[in-house]
Amino acid sequence: MTDLADLYQQVILDHNRNPRNFGPLAGATCQAQGHNPLCGDRVTVFARVSGPTIEEVAFQGSGCAISKAAASMMTTLVKGRSVAEVEALATRFHSMVTSDPNVPVEAADLGKLAAFAGVRAFPTRVKCATLPWHALRAVIRGAGEPVSTE
């Protein structure tokens, strides 16, 4: 059962139960939807971007514990950071959750996001973790169109 305990770490369960920055964002300058058509998970990410900086970010939607916790933790980590930093973090997160589950994760640059390393053992759940990050990327790139995991 270690795989399951790795997947549903306390920090993930906590973000699922008490999502941070949950709800629409007043004064948002941009927003984007993420949708996983296979399982029906939906997330909307709102951001207030000023120049190169993401000043505020929030999310709303329905989904499993993994997607909700990923969205919640994401919002706590990107607030106040530059768009370029967030792009890099999104790339780093994506490569981590799609990496070989038998290779230990280099956690230094991931910080709290290392909690999601457990999804590597559950290939069907990787998209749950990446969905909010796809949506955030769409927000900061100004696409504004719904993004899909497909």
């Binding site: 795989d3 549903y8 029906g40 998970d41 989904g63 499993c64 993994i66 909700k68 759940r125 749950c128």
Partner: peptide, 20 residues
């Protein structure tokens, strides 16, 4: 959420469908 339920059930060898 049903997907989390599906994953936990799978660990017990129980195959169900979760989704729409």
């Amino acid at each position: 959420h049903p997907h989390d339920l599906g994953t936990i059930l799978d660990q017990e060898g129980v195959a169900i469908r979760a989704g729409h």
